[in-house]
């Protein structure tokens, strides 16, 4: 009954080094969707969790190229199709004068792509999360270190995973309830 409603399991660890070890052990045990939480970035955590490389750079590249195309098209269309006026004896379109704007729009689009792509991949903004309802979890912005295994992990099993978290030194292991609405 509780299993169907639970979001997953949350365990607390006393310091960053222990959390790092726990992340390694959790990955070694076959969990793939677990998360770690700490008040500050922990060097080596990406490697410990064996996270794959981020997909954001590809979004940045695509957005940057789109910005480039937009910049070129905008200047070519406005200068030589919509308003073909000779200014300063310059050609209606030339890559020389088009380059600064093209560059700026590439950067602008790439930056927006990076930020928005990061938000989208992280499924942000998200005003609430089941973990917010665990009272101890509030300490995560101060001095506590957590590891969570969501029920969506293929290897998740309430009892077995609970026992596993205990075996790697997790404290205050909590079953996190799914919140509706």
């Amino acid at each position: 009954m509780t299993e169907s409603k639970s979001w997953g399991l949350l365990a607390e660890f006393p310091n960053p080094a222990r959390l790092l070890k726990a992340a390694q052990a959790t990955h070694a045990a076959g969990y793939r969707r677990f998360e770690t939480f700490s008040p500050f970035p922990i060097h080596g955590m990406d490697e410990a969790m064996e996270l794959p490389g981020s997909k954001v750079p590809w979004i940045t590249l695509a957005a940057g190229l789109m910005g480039m195309a937009t910049g070129l098209a905008l200047q070519w269309w406005s200068g030589s199709v919509a308003y073909p006026l000779v200014i300063g004896g310059k050609p209606l379109f030339a890559w020389e004068f088009a380059l600064p704007i093209t560059f700026e729009l590439s950067i602008l689009f790439a930056s927006f792509g990076t930020v928005l792509g990061m938000f989208a991949l992280n499924k942000l903004p998200r005003p609430n999360h089941p973990l917010d309802y665990v009272p101890r979890f509030k300490k995560v912005t101060d001095d506590a270190f957590f590891l969570a295994i969501p029920a969506s992990d293929e290897q998740f099993d309430l009892e077995a995973s609970k026992a596993f978290l205990e075996s790697i030194g997790g404290e205050h292991i909590t079953v996190v309830e799914e919140q509706n609405g």
């Binding site: 004896g89 310059k90 020389e96 004068f97 380059l99 600064p100």
Partner: peptide
């Protein structure tokens, strides 16, 4: 190049 091209 750009400035020299532009000033011509």
């Amino acid at each position: 190049y750009f400035l020299i091209w532009y000033a011509n």
